[in-house]
Computed example of a mutant assay.
Amino acid sequence: MIKVQDLDTPTLLLDYKKVIQNISEVSSFANEIGVAVRPHIKTHKSIKIAELQLNAGAVGITVAKIGEAEVMAEGGIKDILVAYPIASPQKINRIIQLLKKGIRVKVAVDQEVQLQLLNDVLQHTSLELEVWIKVNSGLNRCGVEPGPHALKLAEKIMMKKQLKLGGIFTHAGHSYAAKSIEDIHKIGVDEGKAVVDSASECEKAGIPIAVRSVGSTPTYKQAGAVKGITEIRPGNAVFFDAIQVGLGVTTLERCALTLLASVVGVYQDRIVFDTGSKSLCLDKGAHGNETVKGYGLIQGHEEITLERLSEEHGVGVFLQSPKLQVNDVVQIIPNHACTVANMFNEYVVHEDGLVIDHWKVDARGRVK
């Protein structure tokens, strides 16, 4: 077997034991509180990892884009939520093709105009499309306001012959800007209540809501525990990363994804690695996160801060000279695992320092 330290660099590494542990933790939590799991695969974009999640009890998957849904469908996955508003004719026709193949696909809606556009295209078919209302729980991105506004949209859905209301969901992405665990807990509870309150408004009006779904890795345990929630959709929890560590959601030991990099130069005031923005990305958190320092955590070398990246170079600074030389290799925990995974064609899967497999990043680059 090949040892990890003998691989060429930069290489995307995935610790098998850790990823299995992370999948198991989500599944165990869901079983304990009695909710379903529909993990967001935009983190890993891998059919193999999605299959592991389904084998652990997930009822289906969540995707961000139709391109991801198409890849997962080709891989044999039948139950898919596209957690993104769909309105353009091109995209609606792609959804129709998935329905014709027997895929149980659902799409997000948050505006009346989307309903009309979806129904206009679908009325030329005999197909029915399941839609889920996305409510805004504080991120202020997409999403109808919870409560009466969600009910108004639900009533409009009920009037569309070829649309079926299947659920209400939200994503508390603003939890990534939380200043403390206490803040995360509050955001999570509010996230769950935004969905439950919206569902209650609908059911008081005689509109049943079968699925009440929450997401966000930092908050899924708090939001999932809100009475009335039926499903959780964590994505990053399959890997974890430096942002999750900074938020206090997990520990360094639970981070399954790392980037293997080599030292290309050691200088008086800096050290340079062969990984830059084209592999580690420049992400420090999309929603205001300020808990990370630098552009990744170098395992075993806390004295180094990866201060800046160019395209192919990672430049680290240090308070004391590190015990590293040219061609030494290190593993770097990325700030944001989702964006880094999308930069590579495959995961090199390892266990106890030995390479055991290679898994494709099947939906890499599927952003349409």
Rank of each mutant, 00 (worst) to 15 (best):
K227T: 12
L98F: 01
H174D: 05
L252M: 09
V63C: 12
D283R: 01
A172D: 08
P10L: 00
E346V: 01
E191S: 02
T258M: 08
F344W: 13
E32Y: 10
E312A: 15
K91L: 03
Q116T: 10
D352P: 07
E51A: 08
K45D: 04
S321N: 13
T275S: 10
A205K: 11
R364F: 06
P148T: 00
V317N: 09
A69G: 04
L247D: 02
A73I: 11
I157K: 02
R38L: 10
V272N: 02
G192P: 15
H358Q: 12
T9S: 12
I332H: 09
G316A: 00
E303I: 06
A199M: 04
Q111L: 01
Q325D: 13
G138M: 03
I96S: 00
F318H: 12
N140D: 14
F318C: 09
N342R: 02
G296L: 06
G192K: 04
K91C: 05
G67I: 04
S277M: 12
I332G: 03
P322Q: 11
A256R: 01
K161D: 08
H171S: 01
S216Y: 15
R366N: 10
V195Q: 04
Y16A: 12
K106C: 00
I271Y: 05
G276L: 07
K100A: 00
G215Q: 02
Y347D: 13
F239I: 08
K45F: 00
A199D: 04
A58I: 02
V131P: 15
L115V: 03
I298F: 03
I184T: 06
F318R: 14
K156W: 02
L324S: 11
Y220P: 02
A205D: 00
L7N: 12
V266K: 13
V107F: 03
L52N: 09
P89S: 09
R366I: 14
V26E: 04
K17F: 10
R212I: 14
G235R: 06
D197F: 03
E307R: 05
L127T: 15
P334H: 04
I2R: 15
I77D: 00
L127F: 13
L282Q: 14
V113I: 12
N236Q: 13
N289A: 06
A242C: 09
G314Q: 07
Q299N: 07
K78N: 10
T251R: 13
F240R: 00
A56E: 11
Q97W: 10
H171K: 05
G314L: 06
P234F: 10
V263Y: 01
D79K: 15
K78E: 08
G228M: 01
V238L: 05
I332S: 05
Q320C: 07
I41W: 04
S27H: 00
A56F: 02
I47Q: 14
I209F: 03
K65H: 13
V37R: 00
N342F: 07
P234R: 03
V109D: 00
L115T: 06
I95K: 07
G143E: 08
R254M: 15
F318Q: 05
I20N: 14
E128H: 14
E130S: 07
R308T: 07
V249H: 09
A286P: 10
V348Q: 08
K3E: 09
Q114S: 11
D15L: 13
Q299V: 12
P39I: 04
E346P: 15
T275L: 11
G188E: 11
L13D: 06
N289C: 12
V340P: 11
E68R: 13
P10M: 03
